[in-house]
Amino acid sequence: MKLSGKVALVTGGSRGIGRATALAFAAEGADIAFCHLDDGTQADATAGEIRALGKRALHRSVDVADIAAGRAFAEEAARALGPVDILFNNAGINIRKPFEAYTEQEFDRIVDVHLKGMFFMAQAVYPAMVARGEGCIINVASQRALKGAVNSAPYSAAKAAIMGFTRALAWEATPKGVRVNAIAPGPVVTDLTAAMTPEDRQAFIDALPVGRFGRPEEVAATALLLAGPDGGFYVGATLSPNGGDVMY
């Protein structure tokens, strides 16, 4: 098993890409701590699936934009399950509207959850990884960081910043034994894409070479590659399972 004996912390882990990744990691031997935001029923179900795979699960409601709350959760996870070996920095939100209609509060919320939340959650687990001389941090960006999107200016900007953060941290972390990479998924069947209008969804699908949205499990497979022993030569990379939406 590729992650036997490891402990993974997954933000936004109760559903969607986070849930699929938590289950993929557990299936390969990792114990899982995951957070969500007021999603207790679904989180209990996800934890039950992890335990059914024979692995330990811990979950809490945490707003990752609250730095103190994120650090407290990381500390609790380490106490309960052991040192965190893998961080899957996934929590995210979006508010779709025209550029000129965004308020300062909406802008701040999107950037705080995505960029600040990821930055300081990584900071919460990083020192212990450095002390052990090993660890893995995977930050979830988006194909919108690569191509932009209508009605998603703050989201696209935050996701692009995550890619820059990933590269910068990789320069510092790699010599200390901590691998840092990112994933920029394309359109995937999640709660975020479910909020699209049927017309927008169909237009998006029609423009994709594969002719469909992705499945969370397909992104989880990329996360497993980066987290496991086969991902050792990826440094500061952004892998983009996107169905051909962006080719580069």
Rank of each mutant, 00 (worst) to 15 (best):
R71M: 08
G29S: 05
G92C: 01
T103W: 01
M121I: 11
V125A: 09
D44L: 13
A45Q: 13
Q105L: 13
A20R: 04
D63C: 01
L23R: 05
R60H: 01
H59F: 07
D66F: 00
I50R: 02
I86D: 04
T41C: 12
V140G: 08
V64E: 11
P98D: 06
R132C: 11
V140N: 13
D31S: 03
G40A: 15
H114M: 09
E106N: 02
G48L: 01
I95Q: 02
D63K: 08
G18A: 07
E134R: 15
V125D: 07
F120K: 02
G133W: 13
L81N: 04
P98F: 01
A101W: 14
A52C: 11
Y126T: 13
E106P: 00
G70R: 07
D108P: 04
A69E: 10
K116P: 09
I95A: 03
F99W: 14
D63N: 12
D112F: 11
A26C: 00
I32V: 09
F88C: 07
E100A: 15
A27S: 07
T41N: 14
A91L: 01
Q123S: 06
G70D: 12
L115R: 10
N89C: 08
A80Y: 03
G135W: 12
C35A: 10
D85C: 06
L58D: 00
A128E: 15
D66G: 09
D112S: 14
E28P: 03
